[in-house]
Each structure stands twice: as structure tokens, then as C-alpha cells.
């Protein structure tokens, strides 16, 4: 199962990167970025998975604590991904705010129309 999920994560990351590079529409670029982030998050959680593991919550229900300590999955990648998702929302919202302001300026979503930094 973990191989399938890992493959899905890599496929989503590559797809998102392709969208990020090939699209001209600003909102499409942000969508590609969002898919790229999701794929990388899946890969990171899949690395911390232990075969047959249970969630890292040791609440003495079902099995004893000693047995639970032997069979939990790694909590560290999960904590990192938790951080990453929340920051991802902040970054996406910031990029969309920039898009709104850019659109007010030039009335266009095509990235080829923004040549202010080109010379």
C-alpha cells in the first residue's frame, strides 16, 4: 500500500511542477503550485510510515502501552507536514492577493503581459 501512495505522491509532484512551468494563466500557476505541495506532503508522510503501524496516539485502548510503543508510525514527519500545510495556506492566500492587485493594474491574467522586470 505504501508503495502505491508513494508513487501517487511523486506523480502529483511532477504533475504540479509541469503545471507550474507550462501554464500561462496566473491562477493556473497557483493551482500547479498547490498540487505540487500536496504531492510533496504525501511523499513526506509516506516516508515515516511503518508497515502495519497504528496512529501515534498511546491511549491504552485496545492494546497495552508497551505493545503500542512497538507498533506506532513515526510522529516526526507528521508534525513537519502539519506545519507545511498551514504555511501552504498562508502562501497561497498571499499569491492570490498579488494576483488580484496585478489584475487591477493591467486587466490581464496572462503572465506574458507582465514585462516590467524584462529588458
Amino acid at each position: 500500500m505504501e508503495y502505491v501512495i508513494m508513487t501517487t505522491g511523486f506523480a502529483l509532484a511532477i504533475f504540479g511542477l509541469y503545471g507550474l512551468l507550462s501554464q500561462k494563466n496566473l491562477i493556473k500557476i497557483i493551482i500547479g503550485f498547490s498540487i505540487f505541495t500536496t504531492g510533496i506532503n504525501i511523499v513526506m508522510v509516506a516516508i515515516g510510515y511503518v508497515r502495519g503501524g497504528i496512529a501515534p496516539i498511546l491511549d491504552n485502548e485496545g492494546i497495552s502501552q508497551i505493545a503500542a510503543q512497538k507498533s506506532i508510525v513515526d510522529p516526526v514527519p507528521q508534525a513537519l507536514v502539519l506545519t507545511s500545510i498551514v504555511i501552504g495556506l498562508g502562501v497561497t492566500a498571499l499569491m492570490l492577493a498579488y494576483v488580484m492587485k496585478l489584475y487591477q493594474d493591467k486587466k490581464s491574467l496572462n503572465i506574458n503581459d507582465y514585462k516590467n522586470l524584462k529588458w
Partner: peptide
């Protein structure tokens, strides 16, 4: 993706 996280035993994520 959130269902996939659940399959990977990560309910918080």
C-alpha cells in the same frame, strides 16, 4: 489526499 493520509495512519494530518 486527506483520505490517503488517513490510510498512512496520520489522522492529525
Amino acid at each position: 489526499a486527506s483520505v490517503l493520509f488517513l490510510l498512512l495512519a496520520a489522522p492529525d494530518v
